[in-house]
Every structure is written in C-alpha cells, then in structure tokens.
Amino acid sequence: MPKSDSQSKPHVVSPKLISERFTIELGAQEPWPNDVKLYQPYEVEQILLPDNANSLAVQAFLQMCHLQYQVVPRANAEAMSPTGKVPFIKCGAFVVSELEGIVQFVNNRGITLTDKLNNEEKSDMRAYMCLVHNVLEKAELYICWMDNEAYNDVTSKRHGSVYPWPLNHIQNWTKRRAVMKNLKVWNWYDKKLDEVFQEVENACQALSDRLDDKEYFFGNRTELDALVFGHLYSLCTTCVRLKNFQNILKKFQPLLKYCDRICKLMDKDTECLEDLLTK
C-alpha cells in the first residue's frame, strides 16, 4: 500500500513558516508523541556557545511543559534544520526549528505556558525575548567568531572537529563569513570586545531589573524563562572567555539564583552556579 504524503515526507515547520495555519492545524490534531527527537550538534566535541544556549532553552521549555523528548546529537544537525539553525525537533511528521517555532507548534496543540498572561504581559514577554536574541545571542556569536583568541583556541577546533582536513578549514571559513555578515547587518561587527561585554552587562541589568525579586519573570514559568535560563546557564559554563562572563554574572545575584532554581527543575549540574553565588 502506498504511503500517504504526510507519512513519506516530513512537514517542515520553521518559525517563519508558522503562519501557515493549515500545516499547524494538521499537527494540532495529534497528541504529543513519545518519540519526539531534539536534534543538536555533539555536546562535548562540537556544539558552540550560541547553539548550546538555544538548545538548552528549547529543552527547558519542553520540560516546563512536561513534554517528553530525546536529545539526538548529529554532526550535521545545522544542515538538517529547515532554517539552518539548531536545535530542531522532529515530532511525528513535523520538523520544527528554533524556540519561537517550537513554542508556536506546542501552543497549537493546546499546551501553553502563557494562558494566564494578559495581552500586555504577552507583549512585554515578546519584547524581552527580542532583547535576549538581540543582545545575548549576538554577543555569543561575536565572542565565538570575532574574538581571535576564542576563535583560534575553541571555535575553529570545535566547529571543524567533525570535518576531515581540508574541509574543516573551508567550513570554518564559510561559517565565519556568514556570521560576520550577520553581525555587520545588526551593527555588531564594528564593536570592540569591551563594548560587547558592556552590552552583555546592560542586558543582564535590564533582565535583573525586570525580574526584581520574583521567582519567574511573569509569576509562573513562561518561554521567556526558558530562553533566559538557556543563555545565562551557557554563559556560566562556556569554555570561551569564561572569566569575563563570570565576572559580569557575579554582579547579578538574583539572576544566578533564578538560574539555580530552573537548574534544579531540569536536574542540571548547579556546581558552576554555586561557585558564583555569594554565600
């Protein structure tokens, strides 16, 4: 018997394609399967700071929604993703990438973390998510690809580790050019290293002021909490410019305590955070 189209060919749902209501509604009819796979690069040898942060954010979001998933490392995860960005999930016949796309996909199945939020709070949450993407993510990209010390010691080795010589150099060069072009259009290319750390500190200050002394940004856990946790935890455990990031994060104890809370929820190692938390 010939397979139906949806069975033979996975539906690709990127965050940008999410407006295609028909595709989403198709997915909405089915319950959350047990065999959902989250694809990302190899964690120990390959993954870089920004990808690790985004992957952690998606994992935190899925755990906050109590949804089952299995992490599958793939050397070519980036090439497998419909938008060229990791992580992405394969849920039944659907392939969905990036946190925003996955959040929409999950929401359309009737599972949401923001049902108690009013419109103004939802707008506020979206704005803070833009802040994390606009500052923390760009800073991570900058440190990994523009800072020569980090690039030579870590990024080029890790990114090229899955390719044989001379392909590793070609892949590194291609990726670095793409990242530089990206940073140029967002006016980050001409920044100096000090300015980048200052931007990170300003973003942390803004997040800390918004969090205030609350447990989560909007009372209950939302996708913003998942995103902020993903980036802050990655900065605490990164192998590039760790000291600089730790010195910045030390100044924001409420944010570290907040990360520690989500860490425990996710059964993650909290040792790195405990070192930074003042007793």
């Binding site: 704005a127 833009c130 802040l131 997040l207």
Partner: peptide
C-alpha cells in the same frame, strides 16, 4: 531602572 529595562527590551523588538 524598570523603565530603562523596558526601553531596552522594546528597542530590541
């Protein structure tokens, strides 16, 4: 400080 934080978030958006 909260308004500064909000300014930064909305500007990013």
């Amino acid at each position: 400080s909260k308004q500064c934080s909000e300014t930064m978030a909305l500007s990013s958006m």
